[in-house]
Design a protein around this nucleic acid. Structure first.
Length: 405
RNA sequence: GGGCAGGUAGCGAAGUGGUUAAACGCAUCAGACUGUAAAUCUGACGGCAUACGCCUUCGGAGGUUCGAAUCCUUCCCUGCCCA
């Protein structure tokens, strides 16, 4: 019922950055075949940022492959850590969540994840189930199993330590908590981004400490964000969300730097391996305008997360807006309340959030970034147009259809 | 507990009593050129005001001064060294 080892390994190794240790994976697969038992493949999820993007999709797609091979996917929602909140590291303002919020986000995460995962052979568990049940004595015992020196091996800690940046005590506990998740569910394999390597390895040690066979870890490369510099992340605002509207996914994809095209195909798309080589060639020998390859990438993403029809539509609309400079079909609408309300265009821009302040609105007008029905606005004091309805455009791609009540 | 060094706008980083709303770099935004790419160029980048200008900001609070990010007091936070 399971494919052969070779077949499985071929699929598993594709796009993986590290498998540690590979021999153990082979052994686990052999046993799985022999005993006809699926492997338990774990993926930990952070519920504090409930919007999944292409960066998350890389590892989720890897998990999907395990499902396709007949194995069991287990999503661990880190609600326990989410409730504590993590004020350290880069995310100084990460809020602590209430139990309700973590449940809500967990559910939302699950729904989004199943856009990529198959809905059978997947299980979701909240780690508060076992972490919340631990006493302080349990925690101390757990902490005694690891040393400070070993913790400081983690790259992130080393760097911060050397740079004289603060590291809070509880940060040392996070890898341990994550490792306990592996113990709790007796995972055979844990997946994660390559930045998770240390935490995943801790899971191996803890499983051993608790008398279990250590999990194999598999890391996937981190997807670079649309800015071409930082890893894709919501906090850098360089992401393409899988729940975003088709036109957004399409537009954002076309805005990525050219040198990211191949990587996105390789890591985030379902284009078969066989075609990847061809794409690489096209990009290298410039036989094709990179723009066209990028268009294909954009269509691929929209097809994956919406539909082929949506992809065609998004492409058509994109052409209309940016090549023919037309106005998109579906744009947000705003109705001006007929009583008082704003009488200046600047004020209107502010209430409709097209500008965050009047000064910014004025700046935008001054710099020629604002137009009404295609006519550039040159007057800082321009009143709200009297036309019953008009199109307000700010910058290259923010449109608003405004009506008078 | 003691000593030292720090906390400046989204980030990094100047500024140590008076054109300092605060240099510079990055990021961001707008415009030009493009393929809504890259590179480049121009401009903006606390708020209010058409504008003269006004108001709020340099960890928090209080004080000295005609005037403070800059001096004093106190509190909070971070790092390093010693215990």
């Amino acid at each position: 019922m399971f494919p052969s080892i070779q077949e499985q390994m071929d699929l598993i190794k594709r796009g993986a950055s590290e498998i540690i240790p590979e021999e153990d994976l082979v052994k686990k697969l052999e046993r799985s075949i022999k005993t006809n038992t699926p492997l338990r493949v774990k993926l930990g999820c952070d519920p504090s940022r409930p919007d999944l993007h292409l960066g998350h999709s890389v590892v989720l797609r890897k998990l999907r492959q395990f499902q396709d091979l007949g194995h069991q996917a287990i999503l661990i929602i880190g609600d326990f850590t989410g409730m504590i909140g993590d004020p350290s590291g880069r995310n100084k303002t990460r809020p602590s969540l209430t139990l309700e919020e973590t449940r809500e986000f967990g559910q939302s995460y699950f729904e989004q994840a199943t856009k990529i995962l198959s809905s059978d052979r997947v299980r979701m568990q909240y780690n508060s189930e076992w972490l919340g049940a631990m006493s302080f004595a349990d925690v101390i015992k757990l902490a005694s199993k690891y040393t400070v020196a070993r913790m400081l091996e983690r790259d992130d800690f080393t760097l911060r330590y050397k740079a004289g940046e603060p590291i809070s005590m509880h940060e040392f506990l996070y890898p341990l908590a994550q490792g306990m998740d592996s113990v709790a569910i007796k995972s055979d394999i844990e997946l994660g981004g390559s930045d998770q390597k240390f935490n995943l390895l801790v899971g191996r040690d803890l499983q051993r400490e608790y008398g279990q066979e250590p999990q194999v870890i598999l890391t996937t490369p981190l997807l670079v964000g649309t800015d071409g510099v930082e890893k894709m992340s919501k906090s850098y605002d360089n992401y393409i969300g899988i729940n975003e509207p088709a036109t957004e996914i399409y537009g954002k994809t076309l805005r990525i730097p050219d040198n990211l095209i191949y990587e996105y195909f390789e890591l985030a798309s379902d284009v078969p391996n066989a075609e990847l080589a061809g794409i690489k060639k096209q990009l290298e020998d410039s036989s094709v305008n990179p723009r066209d390859v990028k268009r294909r990438l954009a269509r691929t993403f929209v097809t994956m997360y919406h539909s082929a029809a949506a992809a065609r539509e998004a492409e058509a609309q994109f052409g209309k807006i940016f090549i023919d400079k037309e106005i998109p079909e579906n744009i947000e609408e705003y109705v001006i309340p007929n009583c008082a309300g704003e009488t200046s265009l600047v004020g209107l821009m502010m209430v409709t959030k097209l500008a965050s302040s009047k000064s910014e609105a004025r700046r935008l007008i001054e710099q020629g970034g604002v137009s009404v029905d295609g006519e550039r606005v040159g007057d800082l004091n321009a009143p709200v147009p009297t036309a019953k309805q008009f199109i307000l455009k700010v910058g290259k791609r923010r449109f608003l259809k405004v009506f008078h009540a």
